[in-house]
Design a protein around this nucleic acid. Sequence first.
RNA 1: AGGGGUAUGGUGUAACGGUAGCACAAGCGCCUCUGGAGCGCUUUGUCUAGGUUCGAAUCCUAGUACCCCUGCCA
Length: 576
Amino acid sequence: MADQENSAPGSQADKPLDFIRQIVTQHQQQGGQRVITRFPPEPNGYLHIGHAKSICLNFGIAQEFSGQCHLRMDDTNPTKEEQEYIQSIQEDVRWLGFDWGQHYYHASDYFAQLYDWAILLIEAGKAYVDDQSAEEIRINRGTLTDPGRNSPFRGRPIQENLELFSAMREGAFPDGSKVLRAKIDMASPNLNLRDPVMYRILHASHPHAGNSWCIYPMYDWAHGQSDWIEGITHSICTLEFENHRPLYDWFVESLIAAGAQVPKVGYRPHQYEFARLELTYTLLSKRKLLELVKSDVVRGWDDPRMPTICGYRRRGYTPQAIRNFVTEVGVGKFNSTIDIGRLENALRDDLNRRASRRMAVLQPIKIIIDNYPENQVEQMEAANNPEDPSAGTRLIPFSREVYIEADDFRETPPPKYFRLAPGQEVRLRSAYWIRCTHVDKDSAGNITAIHCTYDPQTRGGSNPPDGRKVKGTIHWVSAAHAISAEVRLYDHLFTAADPSDVPPGKDWKVNLNPQSETVIAAAKLEPSLNDSPVGTSFQFERLGYFCVDRDSQPSRLVFNRSVSLKDSWAKEQKRK
RNA sequence: AGGGGUAUGGUGUAACGGUAGCACAAGCGCCUCUGGAGCGCUUUGUCUAGGUUCGAAUCCUAGUACCCCUGCCA
């Protein structure tokens, strides 16, 4: 695989290791167990670029350290989880280029074990059934500064707890009427330790476990034990779970003290936390992304403007580009926001090496080459990829009338404008040099056609014998041979670098970019683009990278602009 | 306010008591049949204040700023 340029971890030639890889290296050098990591998404939405960071970290470490990485659905809340999400998660992880082998799991597969262990904790006097309402529990939890108060049911006899918990499991009680709580410390400064809820009653059917349960473990109760059961050595998660680590440790230690063990796993996991990925002009909240989908702001989870893995896939991102990006930004504990330009750059960098070049005109304006024979057609040879000679060449038909980009002609050109203007000469890429003689206009004064002459001695675009030079080379398509296609241009979904920065009292959707999508109904493309398969990426020369969208019909292609090319001319104009 | 974290150029990230480096961005130049790509050069930084030390981004003390925690979400 291409991303294995990291040789043996810890070897001298390596780039510096991030703090987690340093920990793993040390673990390995000290003869620790074979490294086992895991990626544990909740199937309550589609994976986004933030998850990609975690996926690359966990699966990447497993690869680099000759370990294994598990894919586990953290499916403890049936009210939010769906089969659709489970499938998309698997698809996206695979697409990113990772393989969990035999190690595919569900937290819900451990429900029975978790239930038995809960009983063990009750028997040890470390868990109790609480009859308080959610409201009462909240009030009695105390605040950040004030300790909580013990539940009136905290002292319930073990036998009674056992019977009640069993009745909960049997379905004797309605939702919300009782919970099982760990008996820890209602005065702990760490609120997670103030008798956290372990089980709630939920008469709901589960996407994976079906109807076999009506009590469901809380994430905090399920997570650490799931890692333990699977023999995870390094349990890697994001910063907000740092406060939960003492609880996970408490659960496993209490279970061990009560005699619990996991066959063949003589150690327990350790958790390490890293800063989640944030991007400018991007929102990575599952809740808000769901809202965009449900309110039809976008056309679905895989809308090319979405920061989801499937959105990027449809947009034309490559797995390699995403992996490179994640590697480049590194892993730390500082809450940082990465410039979205870094992601875009990673795509350009990857596609520059492999995407075939084609010519396409988005805003066509017609050129008539007056001295070119009418009805003559020549096939011009063009390189498919100047970066990669092995990509070969193709033929492009050339004729008397061609389209060029409207922006490549100015009747009164600004200074340093190297493109076409009256009296000015440019190269039509891989074709001929042309010089503008005059323009046709309609009664309203709009230019309807540009008249040019061509120099037959510049065939193929080559320099003429008289030593003339041109500064500009522009793209074109033969008017008679061009195919029409729809092209969708994309811009950031939000206008604010920080989309969560919302004026007081306003909805976060005020930051949505109304021009995030621009549809060009009839772009003109060179005919070799016909029949391009869905998902293929091309560079449209001088414009950007474009990818065939799945909305394409045999008679009508649809392209997404994945990312534009860097445009130093536009940048300079903007600066003025 | 209690607890848990984090501070290095514009943005990220290294340096683990010994020359503050790298990437992206920015700027300048070269080159070019993509104003793309490529190449070269340049600007910009250790949160603050003390202290230890021959020597501090790193160790100590005191501050400051930001993030997370009061779901029967994960």
